[in-house]
Design a protein around this nucleic acid. Structure first.
Lengths: 101, 101
DNA sequence: TTTATTTTTGACAAAATAAGTCAACACGAA
DNA sequence: TTCGTGTTGACTTATTTTGTCAAAAATAAA
């Protein structure tokens, strides 16, 4: 299971930041940040974007991962989760199409 | 836009319940119920199920609508909402497959 | 029109959840 | 030991959600 938190942790380590340094850079408490990377607390989208910039990483991919994780969190124990996703997708496509016109 | 609330309102009217009667039957304040039907407040899954039973309606479809609405609510203003849905779908399918084995 | 019924509205309180703060702990490297 | 690193838990504060209620507005009945 590759969560956004773990991805961000990898990126941080590759970028050579300690937890503390990164936390200071994005102006957040170290304790929370530690918990976020390990999935114990949720990221906000803003934080994900800040970190993507700090690590010079692909922010789009990270945001997509962040969002899908949020969605999955709501549907994980739902019998009809997959069906719900498909309906949602259909409606989102329709909406997008309408906006493009 | 066919929300769960409006669907449930239709079903209620077809079943011949007044807002009050239905509210009493599912043990909820009328004011909240009115707001829920009009999308001003969220339903809980439990209420959707109770109402489906009360109206003799297809609970699966209603729950699917309820869930997809919840998901869409989170993604409605997201640039990468559709991509996020696809990723979520892939992961959910994988998880389901794993559970079946 | 008057009366009664149904639905809607808004102000407010209570409960639940999320977010932030901080001090202390554990561990390994210098 | 001391320093840097990450983790944990207790606690407070903010925010969001949920529930309660009274009264207004709308609708239907007499």
């Amino acid at each position: 299971m590759s969560t956004v938190g773990l991805k961000l942790r990898e990126l941080r380590e590759k970028a050579g930041f300690s937890l503390r340094k990164a936390a200071v850079a994005i102006d957040i408490d170290v304790a929370i940040f530690s918990k976020m990377e390990r999935g114990e607390r949720k990221f906000s989208k803003e934080l994900v974007l800040k970190l993507a910039e700090l690590y010079n990483a692909d922010s789009d991919k990270l945001v997509i991962g962040f969002l899908s994780e949020k969605v999955l969190c709501e549907l994980k124990d739902e019998e009809y989760g997959l069906e719900a996703l498909k309906v949602a997708e259909k409606q989102l496509k329709y909406k997008k199409k309408k906006n493009d016109e």
